Simulated assay, not measured.
Amino acid sequence: MPLATTRRAGLVEQVIEQMRALVTSGEWPVGQRIPPEPELVTALGVGRNTVREAVRALAHAGLLEVRQGDGTFVRATSELSGAVRRLCGSELRDVLEVRRALEVEGARQAAERRSAEDLRELERILADRDAALEAGEWDRMVQRDTDFHLFLVECSHNRVLTELYRGFTEAVRSSVATTVNTALRDEEHVSHAELLDAVREQDADKAAREAGGFLEELLANLHVKDKKER
């Protein structure tokens, strides 16, 4: 797919936009290695330096990660998500505290504003999440649990809140995976049935309590664990 411009700066920007689109669309998923430089040069019809500049820019933005001797990998789906990953790192407490702030308000607004179609989709996602849990399909369970929280926030129909949360979803998924692994060891599993009931009943206060409750419990357990390790 040759690019129709002769301006160097324009070429770099176009390559950046095309590569960014592949990342944000999921065609290049998080964690996957992107095609090697020679393939990109051929596919884009540009020079090596143009591809290198585009990769360097996307790495600086946090979407890509260059691993010397191993290749370039997708790190995040947006600049916001990349920034969140850099800020949070592996600090589970930080992620859970931000999740609490966003998800409590998201649940409150979702209960007030959700449509009948929104509710059906929430029910479908949660049923699939619970089926994956029952079947012991942990990767699918983690993904569907993450999808449930994201769609619940989307049901708020608050565009700013939704975009903020979307930028946070990689960190959310990582925290879900961590807490699911802990729950598997302790044989305890979080149910979101009461949260869904609150949204179904359009009880905003109950939805907020349910959304915050399990996160408060996770944070409390983390605090106890930290104290034991000191």
Rank of each mutant, 00 (worst) to 15 (best):
L3V: 15
T5L: 09
T6W: 15
T6Q: 14
A9S: 14
G10I: 05
L11S: 02
V15W: 01
Q18I: 09
Q18S: 10
V23I: 14
S25I: 05
S25R: 10
E27D: 15
E27L: 14
E27V: 13
W28G: 01
V30C: 11
G31F: 05
G31D: 12
Q32E: 13
R33N: 08
I34A: 01
I34M: 02
P38D: 04
E39S: 13
E39Y: 06
L40S: 01
V41G: 02
V41Q: 04
A43E: 11
L44Y: 04
G45P: 00
R48Y: 10
R48S: 13
T50V: 08
E53H: 07
V55C: 04
V55N: 05
R56Y: 10
R56G: 15
A57F: 01
L58T: 04
E65Q: 15
V66D: 09
Q68C: 15
T72I: 03
F73S: 00
V74G: 01
V74R: 00
A76M: 05
E79I: 05
L80E: 06
S81V: 04
V84S: 02
R85V: 15
L87P: 02
C88F: 06
E91S: 15
R93A: 08
V98N: 06
V98G: 09
V104T: 11
A111H: 05
E112I: 08
R113S: 10
R113E: 14
A116R: 14
E117F: 15
E117I: 11
E117V: 09
E121S: 12
E121K: 15
E121Y: 14
L122T: 01
L122D: 00
E123R: 15
E123C: 12
E123Q: 15
R124I: 11
A127D: 10
R129M: 13
R129C: 07
A131S: 15
A131G: 10
D139R: 13
M141P: 04
V142F: 04
L150D: 02
C155F: 03
S156P: 00
N158L: 06
N158W: 07
R159D: 14
V160T: 09
V160N: 12
V160C: 10
L161C: 11
L161D: 02
L161A: 06
Y165H: 11
Y165G: 04
R166I: 02
F168T: 00
T169C: 03
T169E: 01
R173C: 04
S175G: 14
S175F: 01
V176W: 00
A177N: 11
T178S: 14
T178M: 12
T178N: 09
R185P: 06
R185C: 11
D186R: 10
E187F: 11
E187T: 15
E188Y: 09
E188T: 08
H189T: 14
H189R: 14
H189E: 12
S191A: 06
H192P: 02
L196V: 04
L196G: 00
A198R: 01
E201I: 06
Q202E: 15
A204S: 09
D205I: 14
D205L: 09
D205C: 12
K206P: 08
K206A: 11
A208N: 00
A208H: 00
R209Y: 03
G212A: 13
F214N: 05
E217T: 11
E217I: 13
L219T: 00
L219P: 01
N221M: 08
H223I: 04
V224K: 08
D226M: 12
D226Q: 14
K228S: 12
R230L: 14
